[in-house]
Simulated scan of single mutants.
Amino acid sequence: MPSEFDLIARYFARPTPQAVLGPGDDCALLAPAPGMELAITTDMLVAGTHFLPDTDPRQLGWKTLAVNISDLAAMGARPRWVLLAGSLPKADEAWINAFADGLFACANRYNVDLVGGDTTRGPLNLCVTALGEVPVGQSLRRDHAQAGDDLWISGEPGLAALGLAHLQGRTQLPDALSQRCITALQRPLPRVALGLALRERQLARAAIDVSDGLLADLGHIVECSGIDAEVWQAQLPARPEGADPALARQCQIAGGDDYELLFSAAPEHRAALAALACELELPLWRIGCFVATPPSSASTVRLLDENGQPLPVTHRGFDHFGQDDR
Rank of each mutant, 00 (worst) to 15 (best):
M1P: 14
P2L: 13
S3I: 04
D6S: 13
L7A: 11
I8Q: 12
P15Y: 08
P15I: 03
T16W: 05
V20C: 10
L21A: 13
D26Y: 03
A28K: 06
L30Y: 12
A31L: 13
A33S: 12
G35T: 11
E37W: 10
T42M: 00
V46K: 05
A47R: 06
A47G: 10
H50T: 06
H50D: 15
T55L: 04
D56R: 04
D56T: 02
R58H: 10
L65H: 08
A66L: 08
N68F: 00
I69D: 05
D71S: 05
A73T: 08
P79I: 09
R80E: 14
V82Q: 06
G86D: 03
L88E: 13
P89C: 03
A91N: 14
D92W: 12
D92K: 12
E93D: 15
F99Q: 05
D101G: 07
L103W: 11
V115M: 07
R121Y: 14
G122M: 06
P123R: 11
P123S: 09
L126E: 03
L126T: 03
C127V: 06
T129H: 10
G132C: 07
V134Q: 07
P135L: 09
P135W: 07
S139F: 06
L140T: 10
D143P: 01
H144E: 12
A145K: 00
D149P: 01
D150T: 01
D150F: 00
I153D: 00
G158P: 03
L159N: 03
L159A: 05
G163E: 07
G163F: 02
G163D: 09
H166M: 10
G169W: 06
T171L: 09
Q172S: 13
I182T: 15
Q186C: 12
R187N: 11
R187T: 15
L189R: 14
P190Y: 06
A193I: 02
L198N: 06
Q202E: 15
A206R: 02
A206Y: 04
I208G: 00
D209A: 03
D209R: 03
V210K: 00
V210P: 00
S211P: 04
G213A: 05
L214T: 05
L215W: 04
D217K: 00
D217M: 00
G219I: 07
H220S: 12
H220Y: 11
I221G: 01
V222C: 07
E223A: 13
E223V: 08
C224G: 01
I227N: 01
I227G: 00
A234C: 10
Q235D: 14
Q235C: 10
L236Y: 10
P237L: 05
E241G: 13
G242A: 10
A243S: 12
A246S: 13
A246C: 09
L247R: 14
C251N: 08
C251S: 15
I253D: 01
G256K: 01
L261P: 04
S264N: 11
A265E: 11
R270K: 12
A271G: 07
A274K: 14
E279I: 07
L280F: 10
E281Y: 04
E281G: 07
L282A: 06
P283A: 07
P283Y: 09
W285L: 02
W285I: 01
I287T: 01
A292K: 12
P294D: 09
P295E: 13
S299D: 08
L303M: 09
L304W: 05
L304Q: 05
L304M: 14
P310V: 09
L311R: 14
H315F: 15
H315L: 15
F318V: 07
D319G: 15
H320T: 12
H320K: 13
Q323W: 06
